[in-house]
Amino acid sequence: MAQRLNHNSLPILSIGALGGTVSMRTTQPGSGAQPVITGEALLDGISQLHEGLDVHIETLCLVPSASLDFNLLLEVLIWAQEQVKLGALGIVITQGTDTLEETAFFLDLLWDADVPLVLTGAMHPSDHPGADGPANLLDASRVALDTQSRKRGVLVVMNGQIHQPLHVRKCSSITLDAFNSPFFGPAGLMLENRVLYLRKACARTVLPMPRSIHHKVALLPATLSADTVLLEHVLALGYDALVVSAFGAGHVSVEWVDLIEQVTTEIPVLVASRTGSGPTAEASYGFIGSEMDLIDRGALMCGFLCPYKARILIWLLIGCGHARDIAKYVQRLGFKAAEA
């Protein structure tokens, strides 16, 4: 941990760099972009970030976000908690966008400080003519230091919008407007370099730090004419829970239902919609493989909680010893939180 220097008693902004596209550039012709730009180098050319601030930046790692994992995120969380103890008024994490929606949700479920923790990245590498990293980093820093952001937990700032981790999704692979919050919209906007929130902060769900990290949660997608081989072996492979990324409002094929029922007798089974927008149903369809049928067989519907975030929620609940409370937390995050 670098020593904090704040001789002028300026507001402290802490930035942790993890890599991703925001840190990438092409090192050789034809080689493709690589994560080589350190956190310190990210600040080059963003003079506004130093105006009236004590900016503390550390390079925590330099990897594409597809290679992040839960263990590393727990280390990032501890680093961010230390920044709060050292007096930071706002914290920004830069990372790749491929897993941004998942890391934001993971950290938000564990972030218990009033200080804002803001995640951002870039869709274009730093040497691209339309590089968006500097603007996103500047916006994220302004959001992190804004007093309106306090007690809102973790926030995602991309392309001039502020999103809540529970709702945000990456909905495009390349374009600058890759992030949105289906059904709910952004929580706020950047307007003329000012932070404008569109709704009030609401009650948050914060879990204890995991005591165990060696458990596994499987995620199986329902697809047209899918076989049952993976489902047949979920228990034998030692998984502690299963998330089914189901058709539509929470449906699977008739070939899957008996196997799912068997699995529910041993481990929790959550069913989320694979559509990317909209909730699972609870009482609309009654055919074999429908949401009503799966509920009768012991599965739990996830509401607005997407499959990826359902997997993270179960992993954390098992890790912190709250596995028996899965239904309560799914109801709170997948249904009640959607009403707030």
Rank of each mutant, 00 (worst) to 15 (best):
N8V: 00
P11W: 09
I12T: 11
S14H: 11
G20L: 08
T21P: 04
V22M: 10
H50Y: 08
L53M: 14
P64Y: 09
S67D: 14
D69A: 07
L74M: 13
A80H: 03
A88Q: 08
E102D: 15
D112T: 07
V115N: 01
L117F: 01
G121T: 13
G121S: 13
H124A: 13
P125Q: 09
A135P: 00
R142M: 12
A144G: 01
A144V: 04
D146S: 11
D146R: 01
D146N: 15
V154K: 02
L155G: 02
N159M: 01
G160Q: 05
G160D: 03
H163S: 02
L166I: 14
H167S: 14
V168Y: 07
K170W: 09
S173E: 05
T175Y: 01
T175W: 00
F179H: 09
F184K: 12
G185V: 07
P186N: 03
P186F: 02
L189M: 14
V195G: 11
L196R: 11
T205N: 05
I213R: 10
E232C: 05
E232M: 08
H233G: 01
L237A: 15
S245M: 04
A249V: 13
G250C: 07
V252K: 07
V254W: 02
V254Q: 14
D258T: 13
I260T: 06
L270K: 04
L270D: 03
V271C: 10
S284H: 10
F287W: 13
E291P: 12
A299N: 08
L300N: 01
M301R: 05
G303V: 03
A310G: 09
I314R: 02
G319D: 08
Y329C: 05
V330Q: 03
K336N: 08
A337P: 00
